[in-house]
Design a binder for these strands. Structure first.
Lengths: 228, 228
DNA sequence: CGACCATTTGATATGGATCAAGCGATGTGG
DNA sequence: CCACATCGCTTGATCCATATCAAATGGTCG
């Protein structure tokens, strides 16, 4: 947590996002972002936008998975959130992105100009409300994440599993697009602690680990008891 | 951080907020909350709203100071934020407050019905934008707080001092309305660690502690170096 | 003065970080 | 098709920052 400088280093994103928007695509009319968006593909680990970059666009995951992060001076990385298909990201705040965004796996992302949304919001109260609701949802998610960060390692990991299970399609099977390092940096733990905690949960029969990217919740009651 | 049950307990708030609004007060027309608000006094430690209570109102601090918090099953408390005169709180999200709010000191708070604001927002794009901006600001604050929680104790305390100094009127003097316990629960530390860290900063001449509720920043450069 | 409460300070314990190997998949070139 | 390098993950041994337990100090109010 405080080693001077010798941290694991994060390999630079493969490429900056090319900002030329392909053809607009229309689909779900009640969603301004899908309505106005242009789909764009990103390779694994490609940067979608950088930290402190002007927040010119708003994004919605179509397929794949995205993470946002911030890197501190000494190399520590905090992951702000994981975004799965259907999730909107990049509307954090005013002028600049406080976090950077990268594709975790090869992903398709809808991109809309923020200014377009603002114009639409000015004309249409529903759009304005939708944008506000999305921001509020993000705020609530972050409040829960903040709470998680004061808990024990076990509680954080179990909470993460529940969170992912709730978002996935299968009820008790969690397919993780992200690495252990991503999970660790999201939960404010080390990769070793995450791994150990999962092993421990497995040996106590609470979960099953068919492979490192797949986790089966075997005993939700037992997990719940560890969740505080 | 994980003791079974025997935590310091938080004395119940003195009283639930009486929800009868006194006369409306008008003052700053460009601010819908001040425009429509009704001022209401709260005693020290009085509850302004409870956790999971329907989010019927939005609040703005007129005088005094407010904290929001959530208490986990085992007694651990997380403080979500501190709000000083001029700050708006309680518009976290949709239907319910995720955190509770209490007056830290005797305080006056403007209260506006959320529904009133929503009606105004539907008619006036400026109000809608203002509400969104406030939510965004809160989101950004929370992002920074989340970042703080992965740092060392010293970094958290120094960050807190800078945050409070930036918000106060005096440049290098910080007058704290809140107790050490409040600070500890905000930073995810124990009261002892907060106290020790401050003592340490004092003995290294980075700060001065005329008394426990007042902190003078003596050497911002040195503090900045400890801030990561 | 004396009771009470918040804060500081001291001694010790521990959860998770760090340092250091192992291990199992995946892919590449011979 | 199989050595073998690579990479992500797991497991083990040790260390340290912060929690916990305990006591002393100081400020406030009757």
């Amino acid at each position: 947590m405080l080693s001077p400088a010798s941290h694991h280093h994060y390999s630079r994103p493969i490429s900056n996002a090319v900002r030329q928007l392909p053809q607009p695509a229309a689909s779900n009319l009640d969603d301004p972002i899908e309505m106005m968006g242009a789909a764009m593909p990103f390779a694994r680990n490609a940067e979608i936008y950088g930290e402190n970059e002007p927040a010119e666009y708003v994004y919605k995951v179509v397929s794949g998975a995205v993470r946002t992060h911030k890197i501190l001076a000494d190399g520590r990385r905090q992951i702000g959130g994981f975004y799965l298909p259907g999730d909107v990201f990049g509307l954090e705040s005013g002028d600049e992105h406080t976090f950077a965004a990268e594709a975790i796996t090869a992903s398709k992302v809808m991109i809309v100009k923020r200014s377009t949304l603002l114009t639409m919001a000015a004309r249409d109260g529903n759009v304005a409300r939708k944008l506000w609701a999305l921001t509020s949802g993000e705020l609530r998610r972050l409040q829960n994440h903040t709470l998680a960060l004061i808990k024990t390692a076990q509680e954080r990991v179990v909470g993460f599993l529940f969170e992912m299970a709730a978002r996935g399609s299968a009820d008790n099977q969690v397919d993780l697009p992200m690495s252990r390092q991503d999970i660790a940096d999201y939960l404010g733990l080390t990769i070793e602690t995450v791994s150990r905690t999962l092993s421990q949960l497995q040996s106590s029969a609470a979960i099953d680990l068919p492979n490192s990217r797949c986790i089966v919740l075997r005993n939700r009651a037992a997990l719940g008891r560890l969740n505080a």
